[in-house]
Every structure is written in C-alpha cells, then in structure tokens.
Nucleic acid binder design. Sequence first.
DNA 1: GTGAGTGCAAATCTTTTGCATGTTT
DNA 2: AAACATGCAAAAGATTTGCACTCAC
Lengths: 127, 127
Amino acid sequence: MRSTLQREIILNTIRKMHHHATAEEVYAAIHQQHPTISKATVYRNLQRFAQQGELVPLQLEGDATRYDRRLFQHYHFVCRACNAIYDVDMAPLADINQQVQEQFGFSVDQHDIVFKGICPTCAKTPD
Amino acid sequence: MRSTLQREIILNTIRKMHHHATAEEVYAAIHQQHPTISKATVYRNLQRFAQQGELVPLQLEGDATRYDRRLFQHYHFVCRACNAIYDVDMAPLADINQQVQEQFGFSVDQHDIVFKGICPTCAKTPD
DNA sequence: GTGAGTGCAAATCTTTTGCATGTTT
DNA sequence: AAACATGCAAAAGATTTGCACTCAC
C-alpha cells in the first residue's frame, strides 16, 4: 500500500477519535483541517485499512459502518435506549470457534458478539 | 396492530421464503402476485414486525437488513468467500449475559454471535 | 367517524463509481 | 513511465417520509 499524505492524515485522525467512528465522522473531523481531502478518499481508505487489518469494520443495526481501531479481540454492547456503543473487554471465548467448526463443519476463524440491553446511564435516567 | 390484507400477505410470504430475507427480496416475491402492494408498505411492516418480536432483524456487513423468522435464540455463520449466511444451532451460551452484566454493570437482555470463516462448499471449491 | 395503514413519488442517507488529473515508486 | 491514488460530481442502493386517500375498528 502506497504511502500518501491523505492516508497518514486519515489514520492520525481516527486515532484521535472515539472508537467506532463512522466514515462520515472521520471525514468531518478531517475536513476542518484539510478541506481538500475528499469524502471518497476517506471512504476508500477506511475500507482499505479494514482489508489490511488496521481497522475493524463494525456494522450495527440501522447505522452506518463504524471502524474500530482497537484491534485485539473484544465484544460490544449496544444500549437500546441511547444507542451508545460500549466495548466489552471480557476474556474472549477461546473455544467456541473450534466448537462450531467441529459441530458444523465450517472453517471458523473469527466471531463477534454484540450484547444488547440498557446501559447504566440510561438505567438511572427515568426517561 | 391492525390486521390488514397487506400484513397478512407479507407475513405469509416471508414464511415461505428462506430465512434472512431482505426487504427487497420480500417485496420482489410479493410483487409478482400482488403488484399493488408498495415497497414502502413492505419496509414499514417488516420493521413493525421486528418491533413486535415477530421477526428478528439481522444486520451484517455491507448488506441490507435481513429479517429472520426463526425466533428462538440462535447464532449465524457468514462465509467470507460466498457471503452465504448459515444458521448455527449450537446451544445458546446461557450465562454470558449475566456475566457481562455482573462484570460491567450493563443490564443485558440479549446477545448475538456471528462467526466468520469459510463454508464447506467454498472449502471444496478451489476458487 | 376516526385514526391507523397504504400507495406513490420524492427525499434522504450512506456508499460507490467513472473519469480526468496528480503522485508515488 | 507505470501503477496507483485522489477529487469531484454523478450514480447507485437502501430506506424513509410527506401527503392524499382508504380501510379497519
């Protein structure tokens, strides 16, 4: 992958942002400092980084694709009330890939888990 | 929820289709027999059914929302090669909601797991 | 009769693409 | 020079919305 100024800026920007930023959010953040960088370039490169394993794409319901910059295995929690996305840093379930592989014959290399419920903040706030 | 002819047709159609149909697929299937039923009605009602718990929405990467008519808890496997979606009917992990709840303080009522890898069909076929 | 549901078309949102131009190697 | 990357604007795909009309209750 060639090194371009745009790529550097995109990666730097995403590293400064919250986890799980959308392409649109990354573009907006970049656009302030670098108004000539196009949206297409941001979209193209985020996808590219995901392919290279430098970002992990995260698709949740009714929402644009998000890019996670925490590369180690972890899970997510989505609050049904406020839609916030939290990281769930529990110990990864080490054996379930293997288990599915043996039981169903798929060659499994990964799994994602999304928990849903109500986050502490929303639990406290009577809507 | 009022009972309308359109709703009946939509539910009947989705019951005859493969699991994980998209709104577009449901619409196409309906449209042949009932060309007056509009796409908006299909979209609106699929969402509605999902809210009512009669269908489960399933959002996977780079793909339209799918609606799952298998209501009991189960997981999914997505093939990286052909993008096919398989059901994974392993025993649900009964205790991880509780575990996350205790460890992180979220009120968890559900979790989804998506496995990724290569399906048996693609494994056999040298691309 | 009233409010919920529908059909249609237009609007919105997110993402992708064609193409001419500019940059990296 | 060759291959790849960018910017722009247009296109595409999925979904939502406004509104007048219709139907279920």
